Simulated scan of single mutants.
Amino acid sequence: MRKSLRAVVIGSALTGGAIAVVVGCAFSAAAPAVPPAPTRMQLGQLAQAEERLVAGCMIAQGFPYVVPQITPPTGPATTFTFGNDDVAAAAKNGYGLGAASQPAADPNTEVFQRLSPSRQHAYEIALGGSGRRRVTVDVPGMGQVFTNTDGCRSDARRRLYGDLARWGRVHNLVTNLAPLAYLAVTHDPVFVSTLAKWRACMRVGGFSYADTGAAEDAAARLYDHLPKQDARRAETRIAVTDATCMRQTGLPAVGRRLQARHLAAVQAKYHDDIATYRTLVAHALAVVAENG
């Protein structure tokens, strides 16, 4: 289900840096040395510290760089939308298309666009690296992930977290655990059979979609060729039918229950990687605290 997974992420449009919300994992008393899961506020502090380090590095090389203000997200840490079963809300808001707030623009996008083409090329190399020196790590669920070892972005992360290969593996893995669990949910026989019931219900209502994400995508495309009011009415009709079928089949509750089960399984499987991730984050927080 392409659009059913809603993960809260904030980051920089130009650099590709992001704070990915980390789902907590319980550790037994046998491993008291493992730091607790970082809070979103702490992750925000580290992202802000990384930007300050990047800015210092870029300015030292003669490039302008504005430190963006990063605000940690509020509300639930990670939201998985297996479907909306609130029929009244669907009747009032549809899928809420066009109502979502846009992320704050990266101030460095404008800085970058003001540069000449040759300076833009040099800027990209100074920031993200040349591509000639890199480390490659294998990350479950993501395959091989490449990280340049030169450039201000990598330099900042090295100063915070140490070894880039080690950090690259555990960071990408830990922030991808929830999607790994979600993938397992979509292949779970219980979820598959419940989704089939939802599809059958939708067909009775006159719609044929693979899942709620596909239904929302179809509703969004209506705005490309219909007057806004007509598209809005059609969107609402799809959303109400969707929510009605969600309520009848219980798909959202099934998805949430299975997500919790599969997430616990992947957390147990990658216990050591989670411990390493937390240790590196704790080290970075100490570095930030020591350097103000």
Rank of each mutant, 00 (worst) to 15 (best):
M1A: 14
K3Y: 12
S12T: 12
C25M: 02
A26V: 08
P35N: 07
P36S: 12
P38A: 08
T39K: 05
Q42V: 01
L43K: 03
L46C: 07
A49K: 06
L53S: 11
C57L: 06
M58Q: 14
G62P: 13
V67N: 14
I70D: 03
P72D: 15
P76H: 05
T79A: 09
A99H: 04
S101H: 01
A105F: 03
E110H: 05
P117H: 04
S118T: 09
A122H: 00
A122K: 01
Y123C: 01
I125Y: 06
A126E: 13
A126P: 09
A126K: 08
V145P: 05
D150H: 04
A156V: 06
R159I: 02
L160Y: 05
G168A: 11
G168H: 06
N176V: 00
N176W: 11
L180Q: 15
A181R: 03
Y182W: 04
A184L: 07
V185T: 11
H187E: 05
V190H: 05
F191S: 11
T194S: 12
V204G: 11
A210L: 08
D211R: 10
A218R: 14
H225W: 15
P227C: 06
T236D: 00
R237N: 11
R237P: 01
Q248G: 07
L251K: 07
R257I: 00
R257C: 00
L258S: 12
Q259K: 06
H262L: 13
H262T: 15
L263I: 04
A264Y: 00
V266K: 06
T276Y: 02
T279S: 13
L280P: 08
L280V: 02
H283A: 15
A284V: 06
L285Q: 04
A289F: 02
E290N: 09
